[in-house]
Design a protein around this nucleic acid. Structure first.
Length: 419
RNA sequence: GCGUCGGUGGCGGAGUGGUCAAUCGCAACAGACUGUAAAUCUGUCGCCCUCUGGGCUCCGAAGGUUCGAAUCCUUCCCGACGCA
């Protein structure tokens, strides 16, 4: 058994639910925000800080750990969790996102989320985006190349060539040893044409099948340990494999993908790809209406407050996002009223906490003026204190969403937050 | 006192007759960031305006040479170093 998922309560007249995922390394109370720790570290934070701010899970990245320190070392170190001294559940992304970020998006201003709303503007906007913001400053090595069998990448560190196939990604993820791993997929740009999305989707589906087969093959080689707890549930689980749904912003492709991936023997599902900002909830809804209800769903790389509310409502159980940590390191602090840039002049002599009433370590002990000082002085503690605040903010917001579902007041809670 | 070198926008520092409102770095002022090539990137940064353009002032000060000066000359002021 790879994991146990129990739905505790559903949002009336919606797809959303609150539940519990059981893994070998503890429970994930869903909906839950998964903290991103790409290289087996959540930048600027110790695992103890993560735990005390309320995080339950960490997601690391296959691609990055493959390059450094290498899967063998992580395996020898006891797997990602033990290696980084994080005792809770762990996830690894398959490297599929790097197909996008080092491929189509490479050296360009294409991001996972496009801001446009009117679809008519899409094509012209896409052309602008694809030209790239940097213009002349070309990347120092060629972008990733995709073929039906896999992807050829360049190491951003030394330019050396490497290749991932679905089998290789799964093999690495087995060595990394996270509780939940993902099928190797192709994350496409939201600006890609329908024809390309369709072609990429066929590839992602073929790769899903191959990922699953490789996962099963590798599992057969492992010793079976069955230890049951008081309720008869296993207390040691094998790694869970989540299949990834793609399809860009097209309803027929998303639905086709949900049917195809949903019918495969995965332990749960990831919803991937890039979106148009306003379409996220709709696209997630198309997919989750089709995916088997009893299995957990992870929305990959989504983490803005309004996106989380709509994703939860549309039936997403977990999500991860670099935004809270990356933005923290860049001085953008999250508050209920929106984001503040702590580097702005107005905070230099503001001795109030980042957010009044916030119970995080940073807000309980430090002022905006102090954080402004640390950021201006480029002191490393700035990254730590800011990351603690942003992660506390988002992790606990999602916990409150969960509680609201359990208390049957999700919509009320959502309306109090999202205008 | 004499001599040498030097005084450029908040700071450092290019430029040494026209393409200079003046390279660049820092600081400053804003913005961006959604499965992390990210403690990163972008824009603004003399003043004013009807601001994908136009006007004004400007390179220690004053005067001069020149069609044209931050760049050449004169005097003065200031600084560093050397000699007395």
């Amino acid at each position: 058994m790879a994991l146990n998922f129990k739905i505790e309560k559903k949002i009336p007249n919606a797809l959303g639910r609150a539940g519990v995922i059981k893994t070998s390394h503890g429970e994930i109370h869903t909906p839950a925000f998964t903290v991103v720790g790409t290289k087996a570290t959540v930048k600027a934070l110790t695992p103890e800080m993560l735990k005390s701010l309320g995080a339950e899970t960490v997601l690391a990245n296959t691609y990055h750990l493959y390059f450094e320190p290498g899967e063998k070392i992580v395996k020898a170190g006891g797997g990602v969790g033990k290696f980084m001294n994080w005792h809770g559940p762990t996830l690894t992304d398959s490297g599929g996102f790097q197909v996008f970020s080092l491929g189509e998006a490479f050296g360009k201003s294409v991001s996972k989320i496009a801001k446009l709303t009117p679809r008519s503007d899409l094509e012209s906007e896409a052309r602008t985006l694809l030209k790239g913001a940097q213009g002349e400053s070309l990347p120092s090595f060629p972008p990733a190349k995709i073929d039906n069998n896999g992807v050829t990448f360049r190491s951003p560190r030394d330019g050396s060539e490497h290749r991932f196939t679905p089998e290789r990604s799964i093999e690495i993820q087995h060595n990394l040893g996270a509780d939940i791993i993902f099928a190797f997929d192709e994350c496409t740009a939201s600006t890609a044409s329908y024809d390309y999305q369709k072609e990429a989707l066929e590839r992602t589906h073929a790769w899903a099948k191959r990922s699953l087969e490789e996962h099963k093959r590798l599992n057969l080689k492992k010793p079976r340990v069955v230890i049951k707890d008081a309720q008869g549930l296993p207390s040691v689980f094998s790694q869970a494999l989540f299949g990834i749904v793609q399809g860009g912003r097209y309803q027929d492709l998303r639905e086709l993908s949900a049917k195809t991936i949903g019918a495969m023997d995965f332990d749960g599902f990831g919803i991937g790809g890039s979106f148009i900002k306003k379409d996220i909830d709709m696209a997630v809804g198309w997919v989750n209406k089709i995916l088997p209800e009893e299995k957990p769903r992870h929305l990959l790389g989504i983490g803005a407050v309004e996106d989380i509310f709509s994703a939860v409502e549309m039936g997403v159980d977990t999500f991860d996002c670099v935004a809270p940590t990356r933005e923290a390191r860049n001085g953008a602090l999250w508050t209920k009223a929106g984001r503040i840039n702590i580097l702005n002049n107005q905070f230099r002599e503001d001795f109030a906490p980042v957010e009044k009433g916030c119970a995080c370590y940073t807000c309980l002990n430090f002022s905006r003026a102090y954080l402004a000082h640390l950021f201006r002085a480029k002191e490393i503690l700035a990254n730590t204190l800011a990351s603690i605040h942003n992660l506390y903010f988002i992790v606990n917001l999602v916990k409150n969403i969960r509680q609201a579902i359990l208390d049957n007041r999700f919509t009320e809670f959502k309306n109090s937050y999202v205008k």
